[in-house]
Design a protein around this nucleic acid. Structure first.
Lengths: 248, 248
DNA sequence: CGGGTGAGTAAACGGTGTTCACAAGAGCTC
DNA sequence: GAGCTCTTGTGAACACCGTTTACTCACCCG
């Protein structure tokens, strides 16, 4: 009994220490020797828990993602089940708030050019890999929106044919995750056009947040929040979600 | 005479070797010892030319940035002076191509959470800092577009009042840089709505490219290029630039 | 109680950036 | 041309890093 819990405990301690180093000194400071040093053990001991430095970093990424997901879930719990627009805004604002509060984690998870670990649901061998809980929350909110009414989306025949294959796969993944989250969405309401619009929304949300985190707006921004709220309002208006429950 | 030229020569050789390693073996292979080894000298000799490894990388980054600007300028030179849509597409595609080919420079320049190096035209002390040649090319193309005709933009009174101050400053910066590039743009054609649209275009371009570089699309993308082209076509259509000269 | 298993250690290898004292040479001055 | 200086490069060393290997030690199970 204790043999497994003790192992789990030190495993947690390792990742906690790695997390602390990440927050305190940046991604390049989270090194095996530093973790071990801070824990009072030696570096090779860590190999009892992780196959390599990269392996540990990968698990750290997953941890950070789960924390983000938990934060978003907490925000969503405070909203009415029927307030679809509010849910979308909560998730988008939560993503921004988290990214600004934890820039190092944001870099690690969302802005690291690692070929190995992307957040795609399919691994390099093509086998399915469980989507992270962060993406699942996003998609469950999207599922609720789709269940409560259609969005303003382009016709399926208007999306470029060269995207059809990938978007069809994405659509399948969407339906799968949405079904898992317990929401009923008629298949015909989630066409290629809908999948395309969701992708474009992600592009804009991600771009806006990343630009803010990295300070790469083309001019000095005195208060980035109205900028974000404006983009969010544009986004919601364009997909047909009313401006009820507007911020401020 | 030779004392300075010889120094400049080896300096060039160092950066050429660094560049070669970058291209051949990836970003983490461009190490001081590897450069020296490949050049037949020892690592400490490099400290006669650069204060540190970071310093050398920084200069390498500047080199690559200049290459990006030169690349964009070359692409633009092949187009007719009047092909505004083509110019915008060339600049956007060039930015994407460069980012994918040099992800580490992209990270350093456009995805580093350092407050120090932002691309804002105003430094930390508020003094003006010369905008990099990359931004200048972007804005000169924008100037040409605005000079040749109005865009489809929201009314100035439709942009949120909380953004007015920052957008006005951005508008002034735009007019300044555009005037420097030799293009005549009537001031009344560059209103707050136009500045806002340009900002939104940057958000989408940046978001799309960053997502691709970091592999953070929510589904496996077999060929990212059609995705980018589709986003670009959407962008051009929405701002009123026709779909003449369409790709493919 | 004894054997096996798993956690942790020490030592070592090859790699890295960086510093320092020192040698060789080019160039300038007298 | 002799001497002096200033630059350029070297070699050794230091402090890190990831990783492997052989080893110890404690604990758990039969």
């Amino acid at each position: 009994m204790t043999q497994a819990t003790r192992r789990a405990d030190t495993d947690r301690a390792i990742r906690a220490q790695a997390r602390a180093l990440l927050v305190r000194d940046g991604p390049q400071a989270v090194t095996l020797r530093a973790i071990a040093r801070e824990m009072g053990i030696t570096a090779p001991a860590l190999y009892r828990y992780y196959a390599s430095h990269d392996d540990l970093i990968e698990h750290l990424r997953a941890d950070v993602c789960e924390d983000l997901a938990a934060e978003l879930a907490r925000d969503l719990a405070e909203l009415s089940e029927d307030d679809r627009t509010g849910q979308v805004m909560a998730v988008c604002r939560g993503f921004r708030r988290w990214a600004l509060a934890h820039p190092q984690e944001f870099v690690l998870v969302f802005a690291s050019p690692s070929e190995a670990t992307s957040n795609c649901p399919a691994g390099p061998n093509g086998a399915d890999v469980p989507m992270d809980s962060f993406g699942r929350i996003f998609l469950s909110v999207a599922g609720g929106v789709l269940a409560s009414g259609p969005l303003v989306v382009p016709q399926d025949r208007d999306v470029p044919p060269s995207l059809a294959a990938d978007l069809t796969a994405f659509r399948g993944e969407l339906l799968r995750v949405i079904a898992e989250s317990g929401v009923e969405v008629p298949e015909e309401r989630l066409g290629l056009g809908t999948a395309y619009v969701m992708l474009q929304a992600w592009v804009r949300l991600y771009g806006q947040v990343a630009l803010e985190v990295f300070g790469q707006f083309p001019f000095p921004v005195t208060d980035p929040e109205p900028l974000f709220e404006s983009m969010l309002a544009d986004l919601l208006r364009e997909v047909g979600l009313g401006e009820d429950g507007l911020h401020e």
